[in-house]
Design a protein around this nucleic acid. Sequence first.
DNA 1: ATTTTTTTACTACAAAGTAGTATTTAGTCT
DNA 2: AGACTAAATACTACTTTGTAGTAAAAAAAT
Lengths: 110, 110
Amino acid sequence: MKGIQLGEFEEIVLLTVGVLHGTAYGVAIKDEIEQRLHREVAIGALQVTLRRLESKGFLKSKQGDTNETRRGRPKLFFEVTAYGKKALEYSKESRDELWKALPKLVLKLK
Amino acid sequence: MKGIQLGEFEEIVLLTVGVLHGTAYGVAIKDEIEQRLHREVAIGALQVTLRRLESKGFLKSKQGDTNETRRGRPKLFFEVTAYGKKALEYSKESRDELWKALPKLVLKLK
DNA sequence: ATTTTTTTACTACAAAGTAGTATTTAGTCT
DNA sequence: AGACTAAATACTACTTTGTAGTAAAAAAAT
């Protein structure tokens, strides 16, 4: 997919980083998606997607506090970039436009 | 992507078939997407996507009137199935849920 | 020192997206 | 009739996204 378009899962991940503003790292994002969308997220799938979104400029990352007393690798926090916001807006507008045009008879929006 | 989830383009195509209710065939769908979303659609890409949506049960097709005086292959009209509607609703709800949760500060929805 | 927990990284494969070309069908033109 | 053109769908090959599984890192707990 070239350009600004986001894949299905990419969009969900990007939105969730926004929802968690400031506290978005791998595991938190996974949990948030699972809770809100009642859908299993494989952590590997998520990590790959985060990195892809970053390399395309939709996300930026920053390592968390390493003085934190906690096991595990340092957390990597993600944040939506201005370009990422643009991509989200584009995808929202595309869909809203089509839903608006949908004859009620055909797809009864409940 | 397993289950009911739709890819980005798949969703747009499925919605557009709904928008065109009754008159949705390849070229008409292409034109409709291009007009509404100001985005080029390669007809080959569209045909492949229509067939995939059909084979997954989101769309069904029916050959158009062959007595029509018109050149070209008979048109293939598409229609969204009940299962297709369910997929669209699922994807709308997922996104609406996340957009709703998005702190206004982070992503100013205009 | 070894184990356990929390987390990110890597790798390989499946599904979806895209473009280009081919084929079918039938009207139009000479 | 034969060649040409137009309107469609079909096929094929390739790229990008999605997913799962496994490995590795870091540091506390034992």
